[in-house]
Structures are given as structure tokens and as C-alpha cells.
Design a protein around this nucleic acid. Sequence first.
DNA 1: ATGGTTTTCAACCGAAGAGTTAATTAACTA
DNA 2: TAGTTAATTAACTCTTCGGTTGAAAACCAT
Lengths: 116, 116
Amino acid sequence: MRDPLSRTFAALADPTRRALLARLSEGEANVSDLAEPFLQDMSLPAVTKHLKVLENAGLITKGRKAQWRPCQLNGEPLREAVDWMEQHRIAWEEQLDRLGAYLKSKNKGTRHGSKK
Amino acid sequence: MRDPLSRTFAALADPTRRALLARLSEGEANVSDLAEPFLQDMSLPAVTKHLKVLENAGLITKGRKAQWRPCQLNGEPLREAVDWMEQHRIAWEEQLDRLGAYLKSKNKGTRHGSKK
DNA sequence: ATGGTTTTCAACCGAAGAGTTAATTAACTA
DNA sequence: TAGTTAATTAACTCTTCGGTTGAAAACCAT
């Protein structure tokens, strides 16, 4: 079994699941509501499985109202994933900045980039 | 073949690959440098494959210097992925805000939550 | 040319993913 | 009780993933 961050990213690595999340970011919805746009492409059990993946990743929670399962988005895992990415993306940008500063300082003493 | 966003998330859904990226966010490194911490857990070709996945996702670029392949992080796909996530995470938080506002307004007229 | 490094390629294997259909569960409704 | 709707489970197929080992490629140094 995988660590939470891996499960989050794996869950996001599928366009159908991202579309489900996008739909849920507009508000709660039942399984059949969520499935409706996909039923020409895949079966209902396929959607159920996708929702299970999202649930296992903690990205959604499923309630119960009679025979319906109202699903809600849960943003917390998203925040953690964003945090991980930002941390390294920012480090990457700092590298670029240092490179830029280096190239600048290299041309400082020696006028317009004359060699040596 | 998959869309770029899916490839990015899929590439991030593995702890080895995230560790490789973390290492690269501190600066450029060769394949064998990158592989070194993992060689007790897996073979060198396994690391090569992971790097290939990262490269195909556009998260790293590989240069060549003699027989070495200096790898660099590329943060752009990270930014796109973060954008996608933030967009929906924020929508989710606005839901919470609306819910909070609703609960607040519900208790406005009727003193301390008396029921009807 | 020979030999040593660094890295990749090829072929294979088992496990996990994403889909199917058919059957089942769980709740409501007449 | 019988029927309907919503959703899940089971069993199966096919593909992709993550790893292996062994060989090959590419480059440098003697």
C-alpha cells in the first residue's frame, strides 16, 4: 500500500477523475449525477471505481441519503500536494535566479561581455 | 498516449521519482549521482527508467557532457499542475465559506439557534 | 586497440490499473 | 409483497508499471 502523497497524485493522474473533482468543486453530487457525463464513454461501475480511488486518496467523502451517496470534495490532500510541488518549484526558480545573477555578475567588471 | 497534466501527476505518484525531483531542486546532477541513494533498493536501469518517466513528463531535461547526462529540474509542468489543483481547492474552500455564511445567517434573526 | 566508465536498451516477469458484464445489495414505492 | 432505482461487488480481460538481468552503446584514457 502506498503513502498518502503518492495516492493523491495517482488519483489525479486520470482525466476522468480530475473531471469528477472539477464537478465536485462546484458542489455536492450523487454518484449517478457525477456519472452522467461519462456514461457514453464508460459504464457506471467504472465511475464507481474512480470514485473509490478518489475516496481512498481522501479527496472526496461519500455520505448516504436513502439510496443515494452524496459526494463532497475534500481539499486537504490537494493542499498537501500543492505544498510539495510549490516547495520544489520555488527551489527551481531560485536556481534560475542564481543563474541570472551569476550571468549578470560575470558581465559586471568586463564591459559588454568581452571575453577574459 | 496521455495528456500532459496526467503525465505530470502520474510522474509524481511515485516516491522514488519525487525524491529524484527533490534532489534536483537543489541543483543539477548526473544519473549516477541521482541513483546513488537508491542503489541498495533497486538497480541502475530502474533509476534510468524513472528518469525517463520524469523526462517524458517534461519535469526534467537531460543534457550531455561526455558520458555523463546532467539532469536539471524543469518547474513549468509543476506550475501547471499547481494551477489546476489550486483552482479546485479554492472553489472547495469557497463552498466552506458559503456554508459558514449560511450557518451564520441562519442564526441571525432567531436568537441562539432556537428551532423555528 | 584495449579497457574502464557511464548510461541505456531489450526481453522478461509479477502486480496493479482501468475497463467490461452480470449479479447483488439496499432503499424507496405502489 | 413485488417492482424500481441507486450503487456496489464479483469475476474476468487487457494493458501499463516497476522491477529484474544481461548485453550494448558512447565516451574517455592509456
